[in-house]
Structures are given as structure tokens and as C-alpha cells.
Amino acid sequence: MTWEWQELSGNGTIASWIVNRHGFGGAFPLPSTVVLVRLAEQDDLLLPGGWAGSADGVDLSVGLSVVVGFEDIESEGGDSDQAVLSWGPRHD
């Protein structure tokens, strides 16, 4: 078994989302929205990520076309060598 990287379009649709109203002990701002994106390449591939739109998710709907963005974050060691996904609406 070998694992290989595969480049994807970065496109998908919103499968679901949540809006955190409770901190769960984490250091994230409230409200904050996490989306679950169905990747364009495969219906059963779903990926969570941040939402670049409204913090309370009012601009979201199931099926909404989205495109991925990347946000650099500080790693625990202080290096800015990590990125997380930040999805936003896709305007064709």
C-alpha cells in the first residue's frame, strides 16, 4: 500500500456546517463556523474547514458552491509554516 498526493480542483459544495456558541475549552472566537465540504471530485469525500464568510454562518446553505482558500497559521513552535483550509463562496 502506498499513499500518493493527488491535486484537486479546490471546488466543492457545502454538505453541512456548525456554528460554535460554546467554547468547549478552546481558544477560538465565538461565534465561529466550521463547514463540511463535499469535494467536487467525489461525492463521498467530505472535508471540514474554516469559513471565510460570516462568523455566524448566516450566508451558508447546503449545496452552496465553495472554493478553498488557505490561511497561514502560527504553529506551536512559532513557525509560520502551517496552513489551514478556509472555504469561501465560489462565483462561477
Binding site: 466550521v34 463540511l36 472535508l47 471540514p48 447546503v62
Partner: peptide, 21 residues
């Protein structure tokens, strides 16, 4: 590893995702 960068960690959050769908 795919959840934790977004603080998607606890059962209420995980099940809310399915619940909304």
C-alpha cells in the same frame, strides 16, 4: 487531524454537523 485545526473536537460539534444535514 482533519478536525482539530478547526476546533472541531467534541461530540456536540461532530453530531451537530450530521444533525444539520
Amino acid at each position: 487531524q482533519y478536525q482539530s485545526p478547526y476546533w472541531l473536537a467534541t461530540p456536540p460539534q461532530q453530531f451537530a454537523m450530521y444533525g444539520r444535514a
